[in-house]
């Protein structure tokens, strides 16, 4: 294993993905774009889990958690897209900024 390839490298990739996901969620206007942003953040958490399981003291547990994360992402995608479909059939658009019927 190359000496230089330490934990930091992977954590940096994880952090980068995390922030891009954050940015994507904040700026996207259609619901599916936001869902993708959330997927990015989930993947960032996944990278961290695996990196820590490899370098950290945790042993193989980290990978078990990343399997749960993947399962979670699948469940979330299913529910999210079902909701988006429901909204689309009702109002023709899934643009988050136009949903004003609930304004406080």
């Amino acid at each position: 294993m190359p000496e230089a390839l330490g934990l930091q490298h992977f954590l940096l990739v994880g952090a980068a993905l995390f922030c891009m996901g954050l940015y994507c969620v904040l700026t996207r206007r259609n619901a599916i774009g936001i869902l993708m942003g959330v997927e990015l953040v989930l993947n960032a958490a996944n990278v961290n889990y695996i990196a820590f399981s490899r370098y950290g003291v945790g042993g193989v547990d980290g990978q078990v958690f990343s399997i749960f994360v993947i399962m979670l992402a699948a469940a979330e995608a299913a529910i999210g897209l079902a909701i988006v479909l429901g909204i689309y059939r009702r109002s023709g658009s899934i643009d988050v900024s136009q949903m004003t019927s609930l304004r406080g």
């Binding site: 294993m1 000496e3 934990l7 930091q8 820590f52 370098y55 950290g56 003291v57």
Partner: peptide, 11 residues
């Protein structure tokens, strides 16, 4: 990051 307690070294 380096301070991961008892972390297995890269190698």
């Amino acid at each position: 990051a380096g301070v991961v307690p008892g972390g297995a070294g890269a190698g």
